[in-house]
Amino acid sequence: MDFQALKQEVILYSKEIGIDKIGFTTANTFDEMKNRLLRQQELNYQSGFEEPDIEKRVNPALVVPEARSIISIALAYPSKLKNPPQSKRGERRGIFCRASWGTDYHTVLRKKMALLEEFLKEKAPEVVIKSMVDTGELVDRAVAERAGIGWSGKNCSIITPEFGSYVYLGDIITSLPFEPDTPMEDRCGECNKCVDVCPTGALVQGGQLDSSKCIAFLTQTKGFLPDEYRTKLGNRLYGCDTCQTVCPENKGKDNHFHDEMEPDPELAKPLLRPLLTMSNRDFKDKFGHVSGSWRGKKPIQRNAIIALAHFKDEAALPELMDLIREDPRPVIRGTAAWAIGKIGGDEAYLALKQAKIEEQDQEVLQEIEKGLQMQDI
Rank of each mutant, 00 (worst) to 15 (best):
V364I: 10
E314P: 06
R110M: 13
E126R: 07
V10S: 02
I332S: 00
A315Q: 15
P299G: 10
D2N: 15
G153E: 13
L365S: 07
L320S: 07
P84K: 04
Q4W: 03
C156H: 11
I159W: 01
G292E: 10
Q375A: 05
N28D: 15
F224H: 10
I368Y: 00
Q373C: 05
D227H: 09
Q373S: 13
N59F: 01
D322I: 03
V167H: 01
E185S: 10
L271S: 12
I11Y: 06
V139R: 05
L6Q: 04
C247A: 09
R141D: 11
N192L: 11
K269W: 01
E9S: 09
E266D: 14
K123R: 15
P84Y: 11
P78H: 12
F163I: 04
P265N: 09
Q46A: 01
Q220T: 08
A339V: 10
T135W: 08
I95T: 04
R98F: 04
L350V: 15
V197N: 09
Q86V: 14
I332G: 03
K370W: 02
G371V: 09
E55V: 04
R295G: 06
C156S: 15
E16A: 14
Q360P: 03
L350P: 02
T335D: 07
I54Y: 12
T26D: 06
I73Y: 01
E118R: 14
S100A: 14
N192M: 14
L365I: 04
G341W: 04
L237V: 11
Y13I: 12
V127S: 10
N250K: 05
V127Y: 05
K370I: 15
R325M: 11
D376F: 01
T25H: 12
K112P: 13
D171P: 03
A315P: 03
G23R: 04
L169S: 01
A316W: 00
E42W: 03
G239I: 02
Q8C: 05
M184F: 01
I377S: 07
P248W: 15
T26W: 02
L218C: 03
Q41N: 13
G90S: 11
I73Q: 02
E326K: 12
Y238I: 08
P248R: 13
E319P: 05
L120V: 03
L233R: 03
Q373R: 12
E367H: 10
E326L: 13
P65E: 05
I340R: 03
K130R: 12
I19R: 05
